[in-house]
């Protein structure tokens, strides 16, 4: 999504400052500094196992940093009590890596859950809201199915419908297209684009679907060696001279720029 000319620097909604985190003896984050701006789409890229999802978990307040602070709407989320934390989280929608649907509930009940638990709508109003969201995702046929009966792509769409149920201000996507084929991931990207146009939410996406994901990004941040190596527009990112970013770009998109001879060599090996 492109930001308007007149608001080049919208306010910061999430800010990570000097966040460090270890799991056991393994140090995953070594001082992460990152800002998410309102209405923008931030994409965090990096090799697998670098802790990209851990960053999202910090933003959601699910994981406590060993050092540093995580501010959401200007409040340190780890200093809030449970009630205040819930108030902050009411602005969140999350699409988890495997969609994290409740497998004891069918599609309809999964999507209805946020409405039933967090609002005082009656069942008719809940049905109206749920059917509208499911319609948007093209899932009207599947309402009585259970998560186990759904394909990976459908599960993600149900997860997205559930995440968007309460008109969140910030939506987090943890590897939204992992395990989907090219067609299915394009479909999900289209849904993402369309819903963001409609609802105008801020998005934080963790992905390694490079370069496709760049089309959606306003800003791209690279996580490597436990730190954010740079955060910039996708165009700048691809042309960056910063060695780590350049190495990442060459590694993941190298074949786009490599000469024919190299390409032939590559295929000859395969």
């Amino acid at each position: 999504m492109m930001s308007n000319q007149d608001d080049h620097n919208p306010p910061v909604v999430i800010e990570l400052a000097g966040v460090e985190k270890s799991f056991g003896r393994q140090k995953v984050l070594r001082g992460v500094n990152l800002q998410v701006r309102e209405g923008r789409t931030l994409v965090i890229v990096g090799a697998s196992g670098q802790g990209k999802s851990v960053i999202i978990k910090h933003m959601l307040g699910l994981v406590r940093p060993d050092q540093g602070e995580v501010k959401v709407f200007g409040r340190d989320i780890n200093r809030l009590n449970r009630k205040q934390k819930d108030e902050v989280r009411e602005n969140f929608g999350v699409l988890f890596q495997n969609a994290a649907l409740f497998d004891s509930l069918n599609v309809y009940d999964n999507v209805a859950l946020p409405l039933r638990e967090r609002t005082r709508l009656n069942e008719d109003e809940v049905r109206e809201g749920v059917m509208a969201k499911l319609g948007l995702m093209g899932l009207q046929e599947a309402i009585n199915k259970f998560p186990a009966q759904l394909s990976g792509g459908m599960r993600k769409r149900v997860g997205l419908a559930r995440a968007l149920m309460l008109q969140p201000k910030i939506v987090f996507f943890d590897e939204p297209t992992t395990g989907l084929d090219a067609h299915k991931s394009n479909e999900l990207y289209r849904l993402f684009y369309r819903t963001q146009q409609q609802l105008g939410y801020t998005a934080v996406i963790v992905s390694h679907d490079v370069p496709k994901i760049f089309k959606l990004a306003d800003e791209v941040a690279l996580l490597a060696e436990g730190q954010i190596q740079g955060c910039m527009s996708p165009e700048d990112f691809q042309l960056s001279e910063q060695p780590t970013i350049r190495a990442f770009v060459e590694e993941t998109m190298g074949h786009l720029y490599s000469s024919d001879r190299e390409e032939n060599g590559l295929y000859a090996q395969v």
């Binding site: 959601l60 699910l62 108030e87 999350v94 988890f96 859950l113 946020p114 638990e117 967090r118």
Partner: peptide, 21 residues
């Protein structure tokens, strides 16, 4: 399994208390 497949995290992120629910 709910913990492993992030379903409990999902509840917390929806501001639904997993203890009550």
């Amino acid at each position: 399994i709910m913990r492993n497949s992030e379903q409990i995290d999902a509840l917390e992120c929806m501001a639904v208390d997993p203890f009550r629910f």
